[in-house]
């Protein structure tokens, strides 16, 4: 499955796509089947919202114990916040969605984020 993420232009907050809206909690993100053309189509729509978000893209997600989580470790950190400051970022809110992300383990592949230095 996949979800769509971006950073919000005005404040840089990590946001996720949900039926045409941008929301802050990963747990509420809309899921797209891997072969669902609606995913890439939504990314295209999102790219048109250049005064709302920066650099929208699809991420791979998997169902782990307790809920869904991004496959990539990097994306899990984006959905949670930094590990050195557990009270900073989205993780501070706690709750089942955050717990599921914190519990997620396993393959932490970096998807779709090649040549990062170019993206600076």
């Amino acid at each position: 499955m996949k979800a769509i993420t971006a950073n919000r232009l005005i404040d840089g907050e990590v946001v996720f796509w949900k039926s045409g809206q941008w929301i802050e909690r990963f747990a509420e993100a809309e899921h797209f089947a891997d072969d669902d053309a609606a995913g890439p189509a939504a990314v295209e729509t999102a790219r048109g919202q250049s005064t709302v978000v920066v650099d929208p893209y699809l991420i791979d997600i998997v169902e782990a114990a307790g809920g869904w989580a991004p496959v990539s470790y990097r994306e899990r950190l984006r959905a949670l916040g930094p590990t050195n400051e557990p009270t900073h970022g989205k993780q501070a809110e706690g709750g089942a969605g955050v717990e599921a992300l914190l519990a997620a383990t396993g393959a932490a592949r970096s998807t779709g984020r090649v040549d990062l230095i170019r993206r600076k």
Binding site: N7, L9, D11, G12, V14, S50, V54, L77, P82, K120
Partner: peptide, 24 residues
Amino acid sequence: GALTEDQFKPLRLMNGLYLQLHAY
């Protein structure tokens, strides 16, 4: 919207402003 992100990025970088994982 007068500047695209591609146009704006070098300008904000020249003022030390990066877009990182969680925020600027």
